[in-house]
């Protein structure tokens, strides 16, 4: 399948001289949910803003459904809906007027039936004649989602959709994302909540200081998440592993004072009893042992710390 968004060597340096993106390569597949994960200031919003046409790209190229975002911006932008990070609205307008405006702006003929259904799905129908200024924060965010979907885009960008959002809206939003995905909409969301990425995404990209340092299927990451480690401390240090333990994929650590054994905690057979039996058969004496989880969180923390 060819990518619906193809980002090649994209870079961006703001006028301030700050390099916000460095040679980012990324392909998004049609219909997937992609989570872009990274701390504040990593460049998530910059990346999205360039693809949507709000920020001028520095170097590199972006194709949306095969259309260059600069040369062929009409075709590329028409496919995209964006819910930006900041809550911004024409506060003196009614919900209905602002959603209708969005649809027109993206070149779609009026379709009151579609907009009605959209507002109903987002629990905004009762508020259609209310001025936006009268709405609560959560409702205002729903309006922004409605605006982004008003022109029936194939691709939806959600920039930190659940930051500062109450539980109910968060749940509604996730349900909506799933419904959209069933209709074939490609969704790219940014977040710095790992659980959100875990809950929603098919694939996860990690961005740090303008560099995309990892792109991985969520399942692969989850498998890593499922991995545990057993650390065995030995009474006498070893210089090398005994041949009888070669099958266990052990790692010698702490200059021979310890052994690290990785295993899948979700698997029935962890191999631990066999390992312990083999260790005692090899005549090694244990001082202490502990097991620890390597969480997704930890993976990210390590990834993000690398090179600092």
């Amino acid at each position: 399948m060819s990518a619906i968004i193809a980002i090649k060597a994209l870079s961006k340096t703001y006028a301030s001289g700050h390099p916000a993106l460095k040679q980012v390569d990324l392909e998004i597949q049609p219909g997937e949910i992609f989570a872009l994960l990274g701390p504040n200031g990593a460049g998530k919003t910059t990346l999205i803003s360039i693809v949507c046409g709000i920020v001028n790209p520095g170097g590199g190229q972006v194709l949306v459904a095969g259309h260059d975002i600069v040369r062929d911006y009409r075709a590329s932008r028409g496919q995209i809906g964006l819910v930006p990070q900041e809550l911004v609205n024409d506060v003196f307008e009614t919900v209905w007027a602002t959603v209708k405006f969005s649809r027109g702006l993206f070149g779609k003929a009026p379709n009151a039936a579609y907009l009605e259904q959209l507002l109903k799905e987002l629990s905004l129908w009762d508020k259609r004649d209310a001025k936006i200024i009268e709405l609560s924060g959560g409702m205002k965010r729903r309006v922004m989602i409605a605006k982004a979907l008003a022109h029936e885009p194939n691709i939806l960008f959600l920039d930190e959709p659940t930051a500062g959002v109450d539980v109910e809206l968060r749940r509604d939003m996730w349900a909506m994302v799933r419904r959209l995905r069933e209709r074939g909409v490609t969704i790219i969301l940014t977040t710095h909540y790992i659980e959100e990425a875990e809950e929603m995404a098919d694939r996860i990209g990690v961005i740090r200081k303008g560099e995309l340092i990892l792109v991985e299927d969520k399942d692969v990451l989850m498998r890593r998440l499922g991995r545990k480690e057993l650390i065995l401390h030995l009474k006498e240090p070893l210089t090398s592993l005994p041949a009888s333990l070669a099958d266990f994929k052990l790692e010698l650590i702490e200059s021979g004072h310890g052994l690290r054994y990785g295993f899948d905690s979700q698997h029935d057979d962890t191999g631990i009893p066999r390992l312990l039996a083999a260790i005692s058969a090899a005549g090694l004496e244990l001082r202490d042992l502990k097991s620890k989880e390597s969480s997704l969180e930890e993976i990210f923390v390590n990834l993000l710390k690398e090179g600092v």
């Binding site: 949507c52 009409r74 995209i80 964006l82």
Partner: peptide, 8 residues
């Protein structure tokens, strides 16, 4: 943002 991101 919306005007800038629109196909216009």
């Amino acid at each position: 943002y919306e005007v800038l991101s629109a196909p216009i």
